[in-house]
Design a protein around this nucleic acid. Structure first.
Length: 854
RNA sequence: GGGCACGUAGAUCAGCGGAAGAUCGCUGCUUUCGCAAAGCAGAGGUCGGGGGUUCAAAUCCCCCCGUGUCCA
């Protein structure tokens, strides 16, 4: 980056000079006499014990000081965005204040909520997890205070010069930092194909803020100016607070009284971890994350379980929810939504704690058994075992060690070893829906005017053909709904031809006909939509919104839609929830949702600017995931549910008819799927079930009310006859055994051993069973042959210590080309088809006699 | 989304190519005024499902399903 980028008029006006850091070699600007930039590691902390600001601030005071400062200078204060980035699908969490405005504002697609604006945005960075409590300055959740300006060619708010001036004024004004102690280090910021100069603000060894100026687009080797330049600043609230107090670590300054409180029970690192995690969890859970083993849920689980482990190994530790509540009360001073649903939050946390306890119990037993087994065979548990247990069973190494009699040392690089195991995993997240084979539409074709948004009831219309190719037709306007948003395609007719599928393709909606289109461009055609199908889809879609609302109302605000599908036969919604739904909860939801149907509330669909809609309804709008565009289509069930949605909807809830829940299942950890039907299908379904019941009752010959008992009786009968068959077989075999034992020609005595030989017509399992019956007493050898599918089977069982069954079989099997083997107690061989089985039997008898003779 | 581990009697698990086991629980009997307890006897298993390899599969291989867990 050219050095002129940093040569700001402000620096000259205020008397700054440019210098080079003796340690890191970077250029920086300062009023003072420094040979190095004023950030660690180039210099030590100089503010511990000697605060760099005049007055100590709490985080709350510091946030107010910051936001107030910028408000007084023409900035509008903007409310925080959720810590879960619902409006984007490229990241899980909000990691910086600028995330709030990506991609729609930064790309210029929509105007910012205010310009310039100031915000304090809670941000999450799990990359620093291990440093929390150790470094004295890292947090998983931190607040990034910022002022942002978005400059268009026709409207410049401010850029590098004013930004730096404001920053300097902030520090040296009321906060009272020594102007000569500050350095502005020249850096380059790059991200997402954009880049620009940035300044890193150092004071007494602490990097307090970064001022980023997004200015260029990388185009190969060249840099092209961005049409919209962005001021992206980040001021760490925690660091400002720390600087103002000059405590030993940032944790004392940030967590204040709660930290002192916990320090009575915990060492410094653990107290810091507990409070850091509690703060992050308060935001995460309030913003609707349910702990689970995948996606954002995993991070909530990680924080919860780490916290629980610390509490578990500490005597007289406070309750986790108590720590969460204390932390939440402090946060709520600035963010009142935190703790507003404390009961729901407690339920989520307690459910997770319970699961963790179960998991640990299981693990404990397993480790103890494994330890005993290993030691009894002279082995030892090694470090790799610890890694394996953590990776596959989730047993923290410190816990494993507690259970072991002779524990190995936990290696220092434990977590690095875990990471090594995950090195060769290939990320396949970037799965793209395979192209459905839609043709490209020439750019010159006018975009399709989408009419179903405005009126879902017009099912017959006239339009002009805008473009056509094979079976595909684009119209200048259409009421046909294309597959999307979990709602399946409309069907119907264009002219006399059937429309089999409708799909989005760029700015057009393509209708695929049953065969090649006969229409000419410009031709006027009549479109007719399959009314019954559309009605059913509308009912299912509106039903989905109603259920979503009822589920959130019944189960708690942690419920978010995690996926949905609306077909003609049924619909389903996946929601985030921490356990399976009880029968009672289901009944409640079904009653509630049908009540809303009967209340006949209006369902309004309209367009609204993104920022305005977010402001009015909050981020629960994005139930269906991130949606593109500057305007959102809002579907509002009055007083009940509001979502951004492009689907076709009933205009009153009563049109949904009825909603019948068909099935509920936990499809994965933290996600519950409900399947249901509405409208005509709900009635059909009830009829079908009725029919099935009646038919079952007819076939079983009992009244419907007695079906369960009837089935029980039937099952008992089946069980009975199965037992009977088994008993009969055993009896038959028993009779055969007795017959053989009674026949002096088949049983011969050699020394202590009785050898019984017999050729019977039985298969292998029966031969085995028979052998068992014959060799119940010690000192017996049974040599049996049978035939199965033309192949002779030899079975030898022995309870004589002198006669090894496998030896007998080995010697005999040569006689009939048999392959086999076994143990000294039982052995078997199967011969070639048609091989002389009798010879094998005789050979086995001789072998057994030889072995048995003293 | 990917890796790893695990699915065996009602429960907890062992077995890891040769005749399905242990402990607890259950049933019956003995002992006891009765209970607890003990002793004896017994019932209870498509070894998650489906393919394959093998003379032989709970055990080895492949594909599903389910559970747990680590990591993005």
């Amino acid at each position: 980056m050219d050095s002129s980028e940093y040569d700001l008029p402000f620096f000259h006006r205020a008397g700054f000079h440019r210098s080079t850091c003796r340690v890191c070699g970077s250029a920086f600007w300062t009023l003072g006499d420094h040979d190095r930039c004023q950030e660690a590691p180039c210099r030590d902390y100089g503010f511990v014990g000697h605060p760099g600001f005049t007055r100590p601030h709490t985080p709350h005071e510091m946030r107010e000081a910051f936001l107030g400062f910028f408000e007084q200078r023409g900035h509008t204060r903007v409310r925080r965005y959720p810590t879960v980035a619902r409006w984007r699908n490229d990241v899980f969490f909000t990691q910086a204040s600028i995330y709030d405005f990506q991609p729609w504002v930064t790309s210029g697609a929509i105007p910012p909520p205010a310009n310039p604006l100031t915000i304090s945005q809670p941000a999450l960075r799990f990359i620093d997890l291990e440093e929390v409590g150790r470094s004295g300055r890292h947090f998983t959740l931190f607040e990034m205070m910022a002022h942002h300006a978005f400059n268009r060619p026709d409207h410049e708010v401010y850029f590098k010069d004013r930004t730096t001036e404001l920053c300097h004024e902030l520090l040296t004004g009321d906060l009272g930092a020594d102007p000569t102690a500050i350095t502005y280090k020249e850096e380059v910021w790059e991200g997402g194909g954009n880049l620009g100069p940035s300044l890193s603000v150092g004071l007494l060894g602490l990097e307090l803020a970064t001022l980023v100026f997004m200015e260029y687009v990388r185009d190969g080797a060249a840099l092209k100016p961005m049409p919209l330049t962005v001021v992206d600043t980040g001021y760490g609230l925690e660091r400002f607070t720390w600087m103002s107090q000059g405590t030993k670590t940032a944790y004392e300054a940030v967590f204040g009284r709660e930290y002192d409180e916990l320090r009575r029970t915990f060492p410094p690192r653990e107290a810091a971890i507990l409070l850091d995690h509690a703060r992050a969890l308060n935001f995460l859970l309030t913003d609707g994350v349910v702990p689970s083993n995948s996606k954002e849920g995993y991070f909530a689980r990680l924080l919860l379980r780490r916290s629980i482990r610390i509490l578990q190994r500490t005597p007289d530790a406070p309750e986790l929810v108590a720590i969460l509540d204390a932390s939440g009360r402090e946060i709520a001073r600035a963010f009142p939504e935190i703790g507003a649903n404390r009961d729901d939050l407690h339920r989520v946390v307690l459910a997770e704690a319970e699961r963790f306890a179960e998991s640990i119990d299981r693990a404990r037993g397993m480790i103890r058994r494994y330890d005993e087994r290993t030691r009894s065979t002279g082995g030892r548990i090694n470090e790799e075992d610890l890694v394996q247990w953590y990776d596959s069973l989730g047993i923290p190494p410190d816990l494993a060690v507690e259970e072991l009699k002779e524990p190995p040392k936990i290696p220092d690089d434990f977590y690095a070893r875990v990471a090594t195991r995950h090195e060769n995993e290939r990320p396949t997240n970037d799965y793209v829906e395979p192209a459905v084979g839609l043709p490209d539409v020439p750019e010159s074709t006018p975009a399709t005017e989408v009419l179903y948004y405005l009126d879902p009831y017009t099912l017959s219309f006239e339009a002009h053909v805008a473009w056509t190719n094979g079976p595909f037709v684009a119209l200048d306007r259409t009421y046909f709904y294309p597959t999307g948003g979990g709602q399946v395609t409309d069907k119907g007719h264009l002219g006399d031809l059937e429309v089999v599928e409708v799909a989005h393709q760029g700015r057009w909606i393509l209708h695929r006909l049953e065969r090649a289109s006969p229409f000419a461009v410009g031709e006027r055609v009549r479109g007719r939509i399959d009314a019954a199908r559309r009605m059913q889809l509308m009912q299912h879609h509106t039903a989905t919104h109603l259920l979503n609302g009822a589920l959130r109302e019944t189960l708690g605000p942690h419920v978010w839609q995690a996926g949905a599908y609306k077909g003609t036969e049924s619909a389903r919604i996946d929601i985030t929830h921490y356990k399976a739904l009880s029968r009672d909860e289901l009944r409640k939801v079904e009653r509630r949702v049908n009540q809303v149907v009967r209340e006949d509330r209006p369902v309004k669909s309209y367009f609204e600017g993104r920022s305005e809609a977010e402001r009015r309804f909050g981020f629960t709008l994005y139930q269906g995931g991130a949606v593109p565009g500057k305007e959102l289509r809002i579907v509002e069930v009055e007083g009940f549910d509001v979502e951004a949605c492009g689907g076709t909807h009933c205009t009153h809830t009563s049109e949904v008819g009825a909603i019948a829940l068909m099935d509920v299942e936990r499809i994965q950890d933290g996600i519950v799927r409900l399947t249901y039907a509405s409208g005509e299908r709900a009635l059909d379904l009830r009829d079908e079930h009725e029919e099935i019941l009646k038919e079952a009752s007819r076939r079983l010959g009992v009244p419907v009310a007695q079906l369960p008992d009837g089935i029980d009786r039937l099952l008992a009968e089946i069980e009975e006859s199965r037992k009977l068959a088994r008993a009969r077989r055993r009896e038959d075999l028993g009779a055969t055994a007795e017959r053989l034992l009674a026949d002096p020609s088949v049983a011969e005595r050699v020394g202590e051993t009785t050898i019984i030989t017999g050729a019977v017509d039985l298969g292998r399992p029966d031969l085995m069973e028979l052998s068992r019956l014959l060799t119940k007493e010690p000192g017996r050898v049974a040599i049996l042959t049978g035939e199965e599918e033309g192949r002779g089977t030899l079975f030898v069982g022995s309870t004589s210590p002198r006669v090894a069954a496998n030896e007998v079989v080995r010697e005999a099997s040569a006689e009939f080309g048999g392959k086999g083997g076994g143990s000294p107690a039982a052995a078997t061989a199967v011969g070639e088809p048609g091989a002389p089985l009798a010879r094998a039997l005789e050979a086995a008898r001789l072998a057994a006699r030889r072995a048995a003779s003293p």
